[in-house]
Design a protein around this nucleic acid. Structure first.
Lengths: 153, 153
DNA sequence: CTGACTGCAAAGATTTTGCAACATA
DNA sequence: TATGTTGCAAAATCTTTGCAGTCAG
């Protein structure tokens, strides 16, 4: 299943007559198989460790290309470098960022259609894409904060 | 009215025993009175033009302070530098970014409460803040695109 | 074979830091 | 007056560019 999805992504490269090169596959492979959100430095270091020699410039150029082709999505959160994640087909989701521990939870079911309707009616803006990030406390941090305040009483 | 709001903001500076200095007032004044979203360079250049000498370092330090005090909000959009805007009391809004002309429309009435409830129920995450950006076509660009496709038929 | 692609190193941009001079409370 | 704050210049980061060698199609 995941392999089938990967094929869709590599197809985007070849169908647009870009070449399927070592560095491109290495970056795609890393992002596809490592959970989480990775910044440029992550990608660089992890691929270096795994064996292959790759330059920072190539990472920047490849990520630009992948963004253009819709192979990856960028996540720009407050107080951090831009991170990247695979743009799996039909995987629309948002991010809940814990301000305490930095943990990022993905939230899939998005009822944003309701809001889009409202926006389009009120502003005549034609929404094609959207990003939504919520900041707050993840379950673990929320709980320990509650315990802490109870103790203080 | 706006002056009263400004007072609330300068109060945040003094109440936290920070000093009300020339550069801080200049930046606050610029952001408060110039419409739109301004990046570091904007702020630097516009204040320089107006007369006063100010250093980039001061802008960075002041914006950091303002963010910390909740005097400004940061807007990190795709393909652009972080921009800043005054965080007026009770002015919660989101941004509709035209991918054609770059125009940014602010959208006030946010029905996000519906979604927050859903998120908190499903994930046990405690949402304290959120940002939402929609990308698409502003009314003007949407219209000219429609005209264009009609002409082609 | 050939043009797209790469790694490297150098250039360019952006952001942070150290410090002496200054200005606010 | 005393300490927080500033501008400047230098340092540290981050990103882009130029180019000769390489490799996928």
């Amino acid at each position: 299943m995941e392999e089938k999805c990967l094929l869709i992504l590599t197809d985007k490269i070849t169908k647009n007559s870009y070449k399927l090169t070592g560095p491109r596959l290495a970056i795609l492979d890393y992002l596809a198989h490592e959970k989480g959100h990775h910044d440029i430095m992550d990608i660089y270091e992890k691929i270096r460790l795994k064996n292959e020699s790759i330059g920072m410039a190539t990472i920047y150029r490849t990520i630009d290309l992948f963004l253009e082709l819709g192979i990856v999505r960028v996540l720009t959160l407050k107080n951090s470098q831009p991170c990247f994640e695979i743009n799996w087909p039909d995987d629309h989701h948002h991010h809940l960022v814990c301000t305490e521990c930095g943990h990022i939870i993905e939230f899939g079911s998005c009822n944003f259609k309701l809001i889009v309707g409202e926006i389009e009616k009120v502003t005549c803006f034609r929404v094609e894409e959207h990003t939504l990030e919520a900041y707050g406390l993840c379950p673990k941090c929320a709980q320990s904060r509650d315990v802490y305040s109870t103790e203080k009483m």
